[in-house]
């Protein structure tokens, strides 16, 4: 199906590094879009600055709005309010959406603007050279935290839920089928939807933390994908002990 998805939805090959998690998300997103019959002509993709922002722009054969750093959700709010009949989808990274643009995220969740936000969370600023982000786990190595990140990371699911988002989800790219189903659920949801997509950056985050986190395996990216499988547990299936120290994945609908 890869070839068909490319021909139908993608303008050109991506410039992402080998093994980039954002590419896996892009793949899942297009599988989801095709399965649900998302009308690309009636969809506007909004993205900010950073590697994640390059997933829709310039790649998707749809209207794309590639904006200033951190402001994708605010631009998307304007588009959606002006033309409610359009699907408005934000795809951008953790630096863009959760760090510089965090204020717009919580206010869009509070307002319940019916846009869909996919935060491609690779735990680091990839494009600018591996600097710490608001989602970098405490203790991890980045180019601006050479002795380990002294700050705590945002739990984006808790943040979005606390701000009132009626649909919140988190899926790792390694669980590509679950991720695809989640994307469909988010796109079909008729209110504000937020997804913390656990992506991976082998180039910046992987190399810096290979020794610390023990990304083992025949290749760095494969080691990271295996690590994702290990640290993520399904929130619905796991018991309290299994959840301990793990990253919960799944979907959280607000009780209405």
């Amino acid at each position: 199906m890869g070839e068909m998805l490319r021909e139908k939805y993608v303008r050109q090959p991506t410039p992402f590094c080998a093994g980039c998690g954002h590419g896996i998300f892009m793949n899942a997103f297009l599988h989801a879009a095709d399965e649900m019959g998302l009308d690309f002509r009636g969809t506007v993709f909004v993205s900010g600055i950073g590697c994640g922002a390059w997933v829709p722009s310039p790649h998707f054969r749809a209207d794309t709005l590639h904006v200033t750093h951190g402001r994708a959700i605010a631009f998307a709010t304007g588009v959606k309010l002006a033309r409610p009949e359009l699907n408005v989808v934000v795809i951008s990274g953790d630096g863009d959406i959760a760090t510089i643009g965090g204020n717009h995220l919580i206010h869009a969740a509070r307002r319940n603007v019916p846009i869909k936000v996919f935060c491609l969370n690779n735990l680091v600023y990839g494009m600018t050279g591996g600097q710490v982000s608001a989602t970098t786990p405490q203790g991890d190595i980045t180019s601006t935290t050479p002795q380990g990140n002294p700050e705590r990371a945002f739990d984006l699911v808790a943040l979005a839920r606390g701000a009132g988002a009626p649909y919140v989800a988190r899926f790792p790219v390694v669980r590509a089928r679950k991720l695809t189903k989640g994307i469909i659920n988010a796109l079909r949801f008729d209110q504000f939807a937020f997804m913390d997509v656990l992506s991976l950056c082998p180039t910046q985050y992987g190399r810096a933390n290979r020794a610390k986190l023990g990304f083992e395996g025949p290749s760095l990216i494969w080691g990271m994908l295996e690590w994702q499988k290990e640290v993520c547990v399904n929130r619905e299936k796991a018991g309290p002990e299994e959840m301990n120290g793990k990253i919960l994945i799944g979907e959280w609908y607000a009780e209405s």
């Binding site: 506007v44 709005l65 402001r71 631009f75 304007g78 588009v79 309010l81 002006a82 204020n103």
Partner: peptide, 26 residues
Amino acid sequence: GVFIQMEDEIGSMAAVIGASWAGIKS
């Protein structure tokens, strides 16, 4: 028409540009 009080002036200007590309004078 559409009115929104945004969270700050950065977001206000962003929303205005988004609305303009949606085809509405803003």
